Structure formats: structure tokens, C-alpha cells
Simulated assay, not measured.
Amino acid sequence: MSTVSKIVPFGSGAHIVETACSSLALAARGLNTLEAKFSDREFSAAFLRLVGIIINVRGRVIVTGIGKSGIVARKMTATLTSTGTPALFLHPADAGHGDLGMVTPDDVVLMLSHSGESTELGPIIHYCKRFGVPLLAMTAQAQSTVAEAADVCMLMPAVREACPNMLAPTTSTTLQMAFGDALAMSLMEMRGFSADDFYKFHPNGRLGAQLVKVRELMSAGSDVPRVCEDSSLLDATIEMTRARLGGTAIVDQGGQLIGAFTDGDLRRAVTGKQNLTDAVGRFMTVTPQSIGPDELASEALRIMHDRNITLLFVCEDGDLVGALHMHDLLHAGVA
């Protein structure tokens, strides 16, 4: 007998699924309500003031909240930090025991509180007022302590919680999370935060691998196999063996890529009983696929998959500058 069947009456599975779907429907409805709030002139004006203060702050965004709002605040801190806005999470319980020292007059405090009346936030509010630190707030209660103390208050819409007892924060925290993401994306847009910037903050892991550039993985200089068009098949074979990339570039006198000769081309030439003194230019692939050094490595992998090749030459203004093998991409975690 399953664990579920021991807990709930037989035949109530449909009701459980219905409850889950109802929770999702309430979350979706809440998000639509939040989106509609941006059509309100007062709300959108407050949002623009919020963004303006954060974008111009010389220090950091100190994000704080208690309970479920605190958990959302931690996630918001991580998203802001990784997208170009320096941020720190301040736990209200630790604030009054020395951690308020991390807040400087150059910072701004972003406070999350659904009720706006959490007593743990009191010391932070008093500190902001005493030392002139801008206080930004997100709350659902316009007449609350947090709302009245804030320099800018984002009044979140009243929504129905998914909890049947209307106690556990569910829909409201979903809105807080979504608003945090919207704020971070707006700040990214204003900063012109690019994929290159994102990679600087995510050099490790899969995200970093997808943002690495071709020039960071390619072979360069003498490690790039190359021969001239009139070189012999034997010379091309020796060059391919030296570089161990499964092929060689064919370049003109100016060093520009004009062809490619691979292991497969060599096998076909040998099968045809060609003389190894014949010019490699007769057997090369003309105008082979190439890629620029500043393209994403993930784009190089896509080209290799589409063309069913394992070696890609790297060119800049037509000049051969590197070679990239699929093994290099896979070893770096590009997928």
C-alpha cells in the first residue's frame, strides 16, 4: 500500500489534483493582477522612482525581510547580484546584533513585508531614518508601518492565498518573487548588461560554458594545422598528424582560408589510388565552414552538429586565426 493511500481516503486523488490546479490558477491570476498594476499611473511612477534610486546608488542594495518574505529577499538578492546590481541580504534578526554595520550611507535598503508590521524590521527602519539611508519597500498594506516609513513604497495588489485557511503565504510570495525578477530585468536593461557581463559573473557551471567565446577554446598560432594549396598530399598528411585535429586548413599566400582537408578526404584520395605527390588543392573542400573568434562556443557546436563535422576553422576578416575541435567544446562543457 502506498504512503498516499494511507493518508487520504480512497478515490480522493481527483480532489488533490483539483487543489493543485486551483493553487496554480490563483498564482496565475495574481500575476495578471500585478501586471495590470503597471497600467496604474501611481504604481508605475513609484516603480520608475524605485529603479532610478537603485540605478544611481553608489553602494549596494541591502535587501531584507523576515519569514517567507525573507526567503524571497534572499532570492532577489542573488538575482540582482548576478545581473549587475551589487546586493546583500540582511537578516532582520541579526540586524540589531551588529549586522546593521554593513549598511552605509551610500547604500539603499529594499524591505519586503507583506503585512508591513513585522516587528523584527523596526531596528532597520530606525537605522535608515537616523543615518539618511533611502528605504524602499514592498508591502500589501498601504497604512502599515513599513509603507509609511518608506521613501518609495511599491504597494502590491491584494490577492487570495492558495492556502485554504488563508494563512500560509503562497500567492503573495509568488508576486514578490515575480516583482523581484521584473525589477532585476529592468535594471539589466538600463545598465545594458550583456551576455559578456553575465559570463563574468558565471564563469563556472553550465551557464558559463554556454557563454564562453570561441577564442577561449580554439587552438591558435603554430597549433593550427595549415598548408598551401600546392602542397602535396603527403605534406598535408604530415601536418594533420602533427596537429592531431583530424584535418588541416588550406590557405593562400596571404594566409586566408580557401579550403579544408580532413581525414575523410585523405581516405577518399588513398582509396582512389592517388599519388601522394599530387597537390592537396585537388582534393580539398572549397570555402569550408568557418566561425569568428568572438562567436559563442555554443554556436560553434550547433554548426558542427548541423554540418556533421568535428573541426571548425576560425577566421577574422578571412584570415585563419584558429581551429576548434568538437572535443574542445565537449571538454569545456558546452552543450
Rank of each mutant, 00 (worst) to 15 (best):
residue 62 I to P: 05
residue 64 T to K: 07
residue 64 T to S: 15
residue 65 G to D: 06
residue 66 I to A: 15
residue 68 K to L: 06
residue 68 K to N: 10
residue 68 K to A: 06
residue 69 S to N: 12
residue 71 I to L: 15
residue 71 I to Y: 14
residue 71 I to D: 11
residue 72 V to C: 08
residue 73 A to T: 09
residue 73 A to G: 14
residue 75 K to A: 05
residue 75 K to Y: 08
residue 76 M to A: 12
residue 76 M to F: 13
residue 76 M to P: 00
residue 77 T to F: 12
residue 78 A to E: 11
residue 79 T to P: 05
residue 80 L to R: 01
residue 80 L to P: 01
residue 80 L to T: 01
residue 82 S to L: 06
residue 83 T to G: 03
residue 84 G to L: 07
residue 84 G to E: 01
residue 84 G to A: 02
residue 85 T to V: 00
residue 86 P to I: 11
residue 89 F to W: 10
residue 91 H to Y: 07
residue 91 H to N: 13
residue 92 P to F: 00
residue 94 D to I: 01
residue 94 D to T: 08
residue 94 D to H: 00
residue 96 G to M: 10
residue 96 G to L: 11
residue 97 H to Y: 13
residue 98 G to R: 06
residue 98 G to M: 10
residue 99 D to Y: 04
residue 99 D to G: 02
residue 100 L to H: 09
residue 104 T to P: 08
residue 105 P to L: 03
residue 106 D to R: 14
residue 107 D to H: 09
residue 109 V to G: 05
residue 110 L to S: 00
residue 110 L to F: 13
residue 111 M to Y: 08
residue 112 L to R: 04
residue 112 L to Q: 07
residue 112 L to C: 08
residue 112 L to H: 12
residue 115 S to A: 10
residue 115 S to I: 10
residue 116 G to E: 01
residue 116 G to T: 03
residue 117 E to Q: 13
residue 118 S to N: 13
residue 118 S to T: 15
residue 118 S to P: 06
residue 119 T to V: 15
residue 119 T to A: 15
residue 120 E to H: 06
residue 122 G to A: 14
residue 124 I to A: 13
residue 124 I to R: 05
residue 125 I to K: 02
residue 126 H to P: 00
residue 126 H to A: 15
residue 127 Y to M: 12
residue 129 K to A: 15
residue 129 K to G: 13
residue 129 K to V: 12
residue 135 L to R: 04
residue 135 L to Q: 08
residue 136 L to A: 09
residue 136 L to R: 05
residue 138 M to Y: 11
residue 139 T to N: 01
residue 140 A to W: 00
residue 142 A to P: 12
residue 142 A to N: 11
residue 142 A to W: 04
residue 143 Q to G: 14
residue 147 A to C: 10
residue 148 E to H: 00
residue 148 E to D: 00
residue 148 E to V: 00
residue 148 E to I: 00
residue 150 A to D: 04
residue 150 A to Y: 02
residue 150 A to P: 07
residue 151 D to L: 07
residue 151 D to C: 04
residue 151 D to T: 09
residue 153 C to V: 15
residue 154 M to A: 02
residue 155 L to G: 05
residue 156 M to P: 03
residue 157 P to M: 02
residue 157 P to S: 11
residue 158 A to N: 13
residue 160 R to W: 05
residue 162 A to F: 04
residue 162 A to M: 04
residue 163 C to E: 01
residue 164 P to K: 09
residue 165 N to C: 01
residue 165 N to Y: 02
residue 166 M to Q: 15
residue 168 A to T: 01
residue 168 A to C: 04
residue 169 P to A: 06
residue 170 T to V: 08
residue 170 T to M: 07
residue 170 T to S: 11
residue 170 T to L: 05
residue 170 T to H: 08
residue 172 S to D: 01
residue 173 T to F: 01
residue 178 A to W: 10
residue 179 F to R: 06
residue 179 F to L: 12
residue 179 F to S: 02
residue 183 L to F: 09
residue 183 L to G: 02
residue 185 M to V: 15
residue 185 M to F: 12
residue 187 L to Y: 00
residue 190 M to V: 14
residue 194 S to W: 12
residue 195 A to F: 14
residue 196 D to H: 14
residue 196 D to I: 10
residue 197 D to H: 14
residue 197 D to Q: 09
residue 198 F to W: 11
residue 199 Y to Q: 11
residue 201 F to C: 07
residue 202 H to L: 10
residue 203 P to W: 13
